[in-house]
Design a protein around this nucleic acid. Sequence first.
RNA 1: GGAGAGAUGGCUGAGCGGUCGAAAGCGACGGUCUUGAAAACCGUUAGGGGCGCAAGCUCCUCGGGGGUUCGAAUCCCUCUCUCUCCGCCA
Length: 425
Amino acid sequence: MLDLKALREDTAACKQALAKKRVSPESVDRMLTLDEEKRQIQTQLENLQAEHNRRAEAISTATPADRPKMVEESKALKDKFKFLEPTLLKLGNELNELLFTTPNLAHDSVPEGNNEDDNVEISRWGTPPDIKNPQDHVALATRLDILDLDRAAKIAGARFSVLKGYGAKLERALGAFMLDTQTKAGYQEVIPPYLVNPESMFGTGQLPKFEEDLFKVPFGDDKLYLIPTAEVPVTNLYRDEILDETILPLRHCALTPCFRSEAGSAGKDTKGIIRQHQFHKVELVSFCKPDQAEQELERLTGHAEAVLQALELPYRKIVLCGGDMGFSAHKTYDLEVWIPSQNTYREISSCSWFSNFQARRASIRYKGESTGGKTQLVHTLNGSGLAVGRTWVAVIENYQQPDGSITIPKVLQPYLHGLEKITSL
RNA sequence: GGAGAGAUGGCUGAGCGGUCGAAAGCGACGGUCUUGAAAACCGUUAGGGGCGCAAGCUCCUCGGGGGUUCGAAUCCCUCUCUCUCCGCCA
């Protein structure tokens, strides 16, 4: 969430950065007004409370004879400020409602724009393979009997898949390869819970605004949510903690299933397994000091790129425009892999810097020598390294042979006991 | 699922209605001493918010929430979590 103090002190700049993310200046003004009113009442209330505290203390040392009168006075004073409490609460709630649903500021370098058409390509790597009449992954994989969408639909529904035989093995190999790559790059592996509480979803910004995108599970009197990405449990690892600055940057990676309701994406990517309710993803998460963050984003994005390069999959890197960025993001790079059957690049990784937006929500701080012993919010970053399901699709399609078989990328072969080609089960 | 015990500052742990954001020990940091280090000694050491140019003043927080009271870490209610025993179980 945003820093109200910064919003107060640097209103014009904040409005500008928020405009990129389609937040109106009126909405900012509304928050500032509420904030102003709230602080005024808070000061008023606290002054009366201070007086009340002084009287209570005086009673403790007063003579028994004086006490009854003093107690009466104290009671009367309390009546004078009790009514302010609900007012303060109401203003606070109203302010929070806005604050909690206002997106992060965009970084200066983020291009203006409303949607994906305004994203800016940064670079390309590799050359799309020359395949005549490329087949899509569904056709290829179904024929090889490594993918079964019909039975997936039967047992769960649309947007689910069943991988079989070498299809399942390939998925597992990809996950293991990615994890090995990232742990070698310095990310400590974690296996977090796949269900999390509402506080965690709030911490990373999924709640309260995007509840409809999540799978919710009733649990006793409360509820849990299936994680849409490992970003949620891994970032929340350090919620409500103060880290020693010497451990920063702190880098984790995790391979988890991800669950998304895909509400609102009806009709999009209905063919194949590009957009699923459940998929695997290796996530990279980093916590660092503010002055390390910009560089950390480049680094982390590079680690995601390294996987694509090792797999020799052609891709491009783009920077998202303000209008296409996620709610919590300060700056985002997307990596898009070449999908032959669609003759285009498709998102396979999204790497974001969240400035202190998530850290403020989740209360993740650090301190040390450089902060003079004071606590300060960390910056959080994360990125896919990579989405396993989409990588699976990319491998199947980019490595397809005229006879319908799939050759296995060299780096993956050790993970498949030396298998060089999938020809059938 | 049944029975019991507990949750206090970085850690251990006291406090069980007033002067307690909180003893003591440990740890950490700063200083004295030392060629340097250790030891010893002295000091500092929770988080969040409001007002203020600042110095400073002040509010809230002793697992979370609510209540009783002039006053709560201390009393009551409730929730969560941890531990022990029994049962069940991947």
